[in-house]
Design a protein around this nucleic acid. Structure first.
Length: 293
DNA sequence: TCTGGTCAAGGTGGT
DNA sequence: ACCACCTTGACCAGA
């Protein structure tokens, strides 16, 4: 792809004109990306958080939702027409379990922005916004409990789309499962994070409880796939997909219908190689048949 | 046109 | 105490 849907600018440069121009550019590019993806059987895409720069910042008083509504709708229609699934992943500043109320409030505002994007596109609740559990704040149990309390304070529109993902430093899959049991929030399984931080369970052992966190309206369970960058610190994502390892992941998850997102630097280059492997997988063939019918 | 410093936001771990 | 890093690196001033 020769464009990115994540153009932004410095806060200093903020103006309504600049915002309009940048968002218009990003939305045009997003549609082109989805067209490319359709042409290459890539049916799952994560939209960058910078689609609307400073969307939840106090500087932004512009009604971008209203102004760009037709473009959002057109993108959503395209995605649904081609049975694509879209998702978003707010970045590391979004911490709904922070003891600091200000951090919580800013996080809610940012979540609201992400959810609005998917709502404006008219996408079903299976289009998810995923976050990590948050910080530990020197007390894991209290911080897990605070997540549960804060989750209950979120407006329904946000809860409808929210999902949580296991991380590689603080909260392994087992903690996410506990939070699911308390809140109903679906769990995104990141297999690379799991390989770094776990409680001794193999990927195969995790699968049944992971997929069970997804209700019918949430869509197929979401997973993230990546692998270790050789000769780098533990946790560093590889620049490109390791096809041998990826095939192993496909084998281990064989009995389950999943959507898989690749987290790699070279993006569609790896995605195309992954597709070439996944084409041999009966689950992939099934989804193609469904799309063609 | 190219390059290097810098960018809204928080938390963690390594030095 | 300070810094690099985080799923992804892009902007912008100055040369």
């Amino acid at each position: 792809m020769d464009c990115r849907a994540t153009h932004t600018f410095r806060l200093k440069s903020y103006s309504i004109e600049r915002l309009q121009e940048t968002v218009r550019q990003n939305l045009d590019c997003l549609l082109r990306i989805l067209q490319y993806n359709r042409d290459h059987d890539l049916l799952f895409f994560r939209i960058g958080s910078q689609l609307v720069p400073f969307a939840s910042h106090p500087v932004n008083q512009f009604d971008w939702q209203e102004y760009f509504a037709p473009r959002f709708q057109a993108i959503g229609r395209f995605a649904m027409e081609h049975e694509m699934r879209l998702s978003m992943h707010p970045d590391q500043f979004i911490l709904i379990n922070s003891p600091d109320e200000g951090v919580f409030e800013r996080s809610v505002a940012e979540l609201r922005y992400h959810v609005q994007v998917l709502d404006l596109m008219g996408l079903p609740p299976s289009a998810k916004v995923m976050i990590h559990v948050g910080g530990v704040y020197e007390d894991r149990q209290a911080s897990l409990q605070r997540f549960i309390t804060r989750y209950s304070l979120l407006e329904p529109a946000i809860r409808k789309r929210l999902a949580i993902e296991n991380d590689d430093v603080s909260y392994p899959f087992a903690d996410c499962l506990t939070l699911h049991q308390a809140t109903g929030v679906p769990v995104v399984f990141d297999c690379f994070h799991h390989s770094i931080l776990n409680q001794g369970e193999s990927v195969a052992e995790v699968m049944p409880s992971f997929v069970a966190t997804w209700e019918a309206q949430d869509g197929p369970p979401l997973s993230h796939y990546s692998s270790q960058q050789p000769d780098e610190r533990t946790g560093k994502h590889a620049d490109t997909i390791d096809l041998v390892d990826f095939e192993r992941f496909l084998q281990v998850t064989k009995p389950y219908d999943l959507d898989i997102m690749l987290e790699v630097k070279d993006k569609e280059a790896s995605a195309l190689r992954a597709i070439s492997v996944a084409r041999n997988d009966e689950r992939f063939v099934a989804s193609r048949v469904a799309t063609a019918s």
